[in-house]
């Protein structure tokens, strides 16, 4: 590389460094910047619902188990009331009546 060309390249490299040094927007945040960021922090409604559902999941499962148990107990109690008593004496009485009529 000739001396003149080298000097020109060195000058351009120096200019490039100056360019990078001066490359700055010099922007400053306005008064509402933090509020704008905070507004974007708010979680989306679907996420909130999902989070709430997950937090309530153990309680919901427990409630479902308790309700299931109670309903099963109630159903079996009803069944007990509706079933006629297996009373051998009644059958024997009917049979006796039939025989007496003959």
């Amino acid at each position: 590389m000739t001396t003149g060309r080298r000097e020109r390249l060195d000058e351009r490299m120096r200019e490039a460094r100056l360019y990078f040094q001066s490359h700055h927007a010099h922007a400053v945040p306005d008064a509402g910047f933090a509020a704008r960021v905070a507004a974007r922090l708010a979680p989306d409604p679907a996420g909130t619902l999902g989070w709430a559902a997950m937090r309530l999941l153990p309680a919901s499962l427990l409630l479902a188990l308790v309700l299931g148990y109670v309903s099963v107990r109630k159903a079996s109690a009803n069944e007990t009331v509706q079933t006629p008593p297996a009373d051998d004496d009644v059958i024997a009485w009917v049979l006796d009546g039939r025989e007496a009529g003959r």
Binding site: H24, A25, A27, V28, P29, F33, A34, A38, L41
Partner: peptide, 28 residues
């Protein structure tokens, strides 16, 4: 509390981001 953290550090972050972008909207 996080918004307070933003207020504490926003100037530093703008200064650093301003090094890479000339446009204010890009910096923000």
């Amino acid at each position: 509390a996080f918004a307070d953290l933003v207020r504490l550090h926003q100037h530093r972050v703008f200064k650093l981001a301003g090094r890479f972008f000339r446009n204010r909207a890009d910096v923000e």
